[in-house]
Design a protein around this nucleic acid. Structure first.
Lengths: 271, 271
DNA sequence: CAAATAGTGTCTCTAAGACAATATCAC
DNA sequence: GTGATATTGTCTTAGAGACACTATTTG
């Protein structure tokens, strides 16, 4: 009878056909736009990092950052490594989106992707200068459902505008996935991945869960409210937001002064 | 300049080192135990399908059903195929649990697993006779947190009892995962996968989302309530359950008669 | 009629939305 | 003072938990 040790020494894993495994990361950031007036608060924009592909396939198209999994790391570590290689910044959050494995999704062959949402603070992005002629850019994100039920994903930066159209499909097991009707110049099935990533992000934001990761350690409640409103694409009454967020935050004794209005107290995330 | 077509014809995907990809499925079922009294309603038990490993590694240990991904299928299709090969039954639901990729998790080498929850109705299981001497068995599941914060996973069938102990770990990115302290005779990292699967299942059940998949097309509200109570390990007042579930179900004009009490109306899932 | 489940109504408490009122700063 | 945001409080409504009560069946 063969022992486990003997079995493993005889076992050759290369006997089976294997796929390549990649990680794609939807890295989000919220930017505070330049003030239009010196009295009003600035607008916030949700932004997504895209890379212009320099090689085939989908040469010239924009794609999510990502890369092949290495054998000494987990998929989460791979996602973090890819984001850091691309931005020189460490994300503050990483959320799983799903596995994309439909045969034919990558013309290079049998390639399966694990998708993640990562969140990066504007603060940290500003510290590393970004070359404007670079092939990595932060696109302003808009994702809305129109009256006919279709979803419209718009990604804009300077004069580049990518418009994808997707339909929400319920699989036979009631999982929702997004079918690409118009990819809008996005590589592979990345329009679908981005739509899923936004769904995950909004789901987390609804529970006040991912919003803290867009801000520094200490923040004002209004800043936090703007983050949630930007992600969810809604507006909330300030009084109600404060009541609801109350159990998630802790006061500090610091204030933001210097603005032309009452100073705001800084808070930190509880626990 | 190389065209995309030329690029692809020169591209050899086998140049990169690749992992093997498997799917592991936590298949759940709720069994109605034999009546102890002829007046009282039967007890319900949450059950999980486990397979006794016939070969190395972990020979003789119990493991989740699963297998290697084929190049012509998605991971979801692979999960469904594996469950059907093992049980001859088609699940009524399939929920993603996550990707398990920690280096060293499988002694055979670089093997990454996508885990799913699948739900099977008791009705369909009863139709295919199960050999009691078989190496596939439905274990009664118990999963509880003790006072010291540890989680205790107990799987029982006849005189077989597997007891695993896990601790809930928050990763640096606030994802919770379960670290195995005592595997209780479960193969690989399957104790951890099962704990995650139960967390996913309970999360869905809380939203009244996965509970319908345990029952046939038509069901009584009390049966539905028992399913939720069994999964969540709580009890609910009947009046409140009916009020809360009201918007998810639709009446039929059929009744269950023959019991020693008022007949119950049959309902179907709305939409 | 006894015992059991099926089903309804109502009280209370809490959480969330709407909205009003007050506070405090820089200029 | 003016105009902006910061912060607090109150009214109302919707939903969830607790609980009491009625309905219907079979043996």
């Amino acid at each position: 009878m063969e022992s486990e040790k003997e079995f493993l020494s005889n076992y050759n894993i290369k006997d089976y056909e294997r796929p390549s495994l990649t990680t794609d990361v939807a890295a989000f950031m919220i930017s505070t736009e330049d003030k239009t007036s010196d009295r009003k608060d600035p607008d916030n924009k949700l932004r997504l990092l895209l890379i212009k592909r320099g090689g085939h396939p989908y040469k010239g198209c924009w794609a999510l950052p990502g890369g092949f999994l290495q054998s000494n790391e987990t998929v989460e570590e791979c996602a973090l490594r890819e984001i850091q290689e691309e931005t020189n910044v460490m994300p503050t959050a990483l959320l799983p989106v799903g596995t994309f494995s439909k045969p034919g999704r990558d013309p290079r062959g049998w390639i399966i992707s694990n998708a993640y949402v990562s969140i990066i603070t504007e603060e940290s992005v500003k510290q590393v200068a970004m070359d404007d002629a670079d092939d990595a850019q932060w696109f302003i994100v808009s994702f809305e459902q129109s009256d006919d039920g279709l979803y419209h994903l718009t990604l804009e930066y300077d004069d580049v505008s990518l418009k994808a159209v997707l339909s929400e499909e319920k699989t036979s097991y009631r999982r929702t996935e997004f079918r690409i009707i118009e990819s809008g110049g996005l590589a592979f099935d990345h329009a679908s991945i981005i739509a899923m990533a936004l769904t995950v992000l909004r789901h987390e934001a609804k529970k006040f869960d991912a919003i803290f990761d867009f801000l520094p350690e200490k923040f004002t409640l209004t800043a936090l409210q703007r983050v949630q409103e930007t992600i969810m694409n809604v507006t909330v009454l300030p009084g109600n937001f404060r009541r609801m967020i109350g159990s998630y935050v802790e006061e500090t004794d610091e204030y933001v002064k210097g603005e032309r209005h009452r100073p705001a107290k800084l808070y930190t995330r509880k626990k």
